[in-house]
Design a protein around this nucleic acid. Structure first.
Length: 111
DNA sequence: AGCGTGACGTATA
DNA sequence: TTATACGCCACGC
């Protein structure tokens, strides 16, 4: 397992309940701002790993782009709603209000 | 070993 | 302003 993935997983575990972040924010925080796709790829793998709240990670528009990978059901949506995050039409409402920026809450030296 | 792919994001037209 | 193009890099075939 590559270091990059480990870092992504570690970071995701730091996402507080009821909050979400974006692939780009994660990539940027990990120093791979141009590799946001890799973050998404890593999340895909994380579906099989536990301790990684993949449902709290969405694209920069707050859209549930990965919902299709959650078994094809409304699981992701339910999980988010369950944490108090309003989701409608595969999109988080008031996204900026729930957005959680790792750079503002985590210590880069931990990674 | 090489090629295509992808839960994104930014840059152009 | 909306639509398309391209870069990015690890992974699977």
């Amino acid at each position: 397992m590559s270091d990059f993935y480990d870092r992504v997983y570690a970071l995701c575990r730091h996402i507080p309940e009821g909050r979400v972040t974006s692939y780009g924010a994660i990539a940027k925080f990990l120093g791979a701002a141009k590799s946001s796709r890799l973050v998404g790829y890593a999340m895909n793998k994380s579906l099989t790993a536990d301790g990684v709240p993949a449902h709290r990670v969405v694209n920069r528009l707050g859209m549930l782009s990965g919902k299709h990978h959650f078994g094809g059901s409304t699981l992701m949506e339910d999980l988010l709603k369950n944490e108090g995050i309003p989701v409608k039409e595969d999109q988080i409402q008031n996204f900026d209000q729930y957005f959680w920026d790792p750079a503002e809450h985590l210590n880069p030296s931990d990674f």
